[in-house]
């Protein structure tokens, strides 16, 4: 075990995968010599050479396109998109090509690639360095979409993503890179050093894609969260002094529906939170699933706490971010709701 922040854990995952499998190649804008603008690939070019770790031209469509070609050839490309906000030029390659290659060729070809990209706000990055576009990928058949919330999972899930035979979209909540940010932006950030999930297993550590993790347990309510919002939810629960199931989904597709249903049937109440915009966000999918599978167990309507349906603002970002106060309000509301009160 070693203590790591999320950047180091992501780097360790690529290092581990490259060490055991020569087919793993890593590339993207500024990832070679410099080691990436967030330094996730630092030192890898030196260790594995320029033909396995290299800078690419600034062309996201090209980055994904060549990754598909390499994956179809038999390599295991790990492509970095510098910010999730810049993936759109590569979106066609992901949606029309990577996602469907296996199906349309009846298994003749496939594209086992990983697209890594930092997502989420809270760094005063404005509308082009803050987005959470996960729902644009969960909506596409043929893609897996995952979002770790801590260093240990970041490593284990990235290794699993690289080893996966299907294309995996791997989001890195950048506000968590250096510590378990709980949404209290006016308080100092705690580091991963003292967090149990900052302990990262050495070597080949794999976290299966499709398994949610319960971060806290309780009968009052279920909170369905992923990425940065896991820590916001834990803070909200702590501050309210309630006993809640905080379910870190980790993987959106494939989704651990069983864990969700188990928890909601137990608590009868559910709040869903994500940083992405509300309308057609992944929360809508979760809400529909909970309704379908747990309707007769629900004591109160499901609520969603999310980013607003606006671009991510620069100055007003903490009004945009679904922080602990907004989450607590929704939780209280759902806890207070009873059929009697409604009538």
């Amino acid at each position: 075990m070693a203590r790591m922040n999320m950047i180091e854990a992501i780097r360790d995952a690529m290092d581990t995968a490259m060490g055991v499998d020569k087919r793993v190649v890593v590339f993207g804008e500024d990832v070679g010599y410099y080691g990436g603008v967030f330094r996730c690939t630092q030192g890898l070019q030196k260790k594995y050479g320029k033909s396995r770790v290299f800078d690419t031209p600034i062309n996201e469509s090209g980055i994904i396109g060549v990754a598909i070609g390499m994956a179809a050839y038999g390599l295991r490309p790990v492509a970095e998109i510098q910010f999730a906000d810049y993936v759109y030029p590569g979106y066609d390659q992901i949606v029309s090509e990577a996602a469907r290659l296996r199906h349309r060729s009846a298994g003749d070809f496939s594209a086992p690639l990983v697209v890594r990209m930092p997502c989420g706000g809270g760094i005063h990055g404005g509308q082009t360095h803050s987005q959470s576009p996960e729902a644009l990928f969960t909506h596409v058949a043929g893609l897996k979409t995952v979002i770790p919330s801590n260093p240990s999972d970041a490593k284990g899930m990235l290794i699993a993503a690289i080893e996966d035979d299907d294309p995996v979209i791997y989001f890195e909540p950048k506000r968590l890179y250096n510590g378990p940010f709980d949404g209290h932006h006016d308080q100092p950030l705690t580091s991963w050093r003292n967090h149990p999930l900052g302990e990262v297993p050495d070597g080949h550590h794999r976290v299966a894609l499709g398994e949610a993790a319960l971060r806290s347990e309780g009968d009052d309510i279920t909170l369905l969260v992923y990425g940065t919002l896991v820590h916001v939810a834990l803070a909200a629960v702590r501050e309210l002094g309630i006993a809640a199931d905080v379910l870190d989904l980790r993987s959106l597709i494939p989704l651990d529906l069983e864990a969700i249903v188990r928890s909601v049937k137990k608590t009868g109440r559910c709040v869903i939170a994500h940083e992405a915009t509300l309308t057609s966000g992944f929360g809508a999918e979760l809400s529909a699933l909970v309704q379908e599978h747990c309707f007769w167990h629900l004591e109160a309507p499901i609520e969603r706490v999310t980013g607003w349906d606006t671009p991510y603002p620069h100055a007003q970002e903490w009004y945009y971010f679904p922080g602990p106060e907004r989450l607590k309000k929704a939780i209280r509301h759902v806890l207070d709701a009873t059929p009697a009160k409604q009538s």
Binding site: D85, Y86, Y88, P89, G126, Q127, H129, P313, H314, A315
Partner: peptide, 27 residues
């Protein structure tokens, strides 16, 4: 701020001065 805090610093906009609203997305 005429852009009302919405944009990252340096991403100005001024139709009057022939300066098209700057996007952060390259190209």
């Amino acid at each position: 701020d005429t852009l009302r805090g919405r944009q990252l610093p340096v991403l100005y906009s001024s139709k009057e001065y022939g300066f098209f609203s700057l996007s952060g997305n390259l190209g």
